[in-house]
Computed example of a mutant assay.
Amino acid sequence: MKIREEMTLLMEEYETSGQTQKLFSESKGIGFHKFNYWYRKLQREAAAPGGFHKIESRVPRPVRDCRAELVYPNGVVLRLDSLDPELVSRLIRLY
């Protein structure tokens, strides 16, 4: 069994155990830091499958006829045809 499969099964078991991460990882003979790494990793992946984050805007009327370009340090470029201040703020914090 691959490590990902093993850790996924352990995380499912942990969720129903009622124990703290520290106690659970010790009972399974896994280092706490390794367990916590996998826990956070699998939680992030479950929240955003495929590495994408769903962002919904709560502002009813975005500014029209405006173009903007958001460039992240890793080279990703987002081109926006209309501006929603809250959406832009969330996209900036996403990186």
Rank of each mutant, 00 (worst) to 15 (best):
K28V: 00
G29P: 04
I30C: 08
I30A: 08
I30S: 06
G31R: 12
F32L: 00
F32A: 04
F32E: 03
H33K: 14
H33N: 09
F35Y: 05
F35A: 03
Y37K: 02
W38V: 03
W38T: 04
W38D: 03
Y39M: 05
Y39E: 08
Y39C: 07
R40M: 00
K41L: 06
K41Q: 09
K41W: 04
K41V: 01
K41F: 03
L42C: 11
Q43M: 11
Q43F: 07
E45P: 10
E45T: 06
A46H: 13
A48F: 11
P49E: 12
G50F: 05
G50A: 02
G51Y: 07
F52A: 11
F52T: 10
F52V: 13
F52C: 12
K54P: 07
K54Q: 11
K54M: 10
K54E: 11
E56R: 15
E56A: 13
E56H: 11
S57Y: 02
V59I: 08
V59N: 02
V59Q: 05
P60G: 04
P60M: 03
R61Y: 04
R61M: 02
R61C: 00
P62N: 05
P62A: 01
V63P: 00
V63S: 01
R64C: 01
R64A: 04
D65I: 01
C66F: 09
R67H: 10
A68V: 06
A68W: 00
A68P: 06
E69V: 12
E69F: 08
L70E: 02
L70H: 13
V71C: 13
Y72C: 05
P73G: 11
P73F: 11
N74A: 12
N74F: 13
N74H: 15
V76E: 12
V76Q: 14
V77T: 14
V77P: 07
L78I: 14
L78G: 11
L78E: 14
R79K: 15
R79L: 11
L80N: 11
D81C: 06
S82N: 07
S82G: 00
L83D: 05
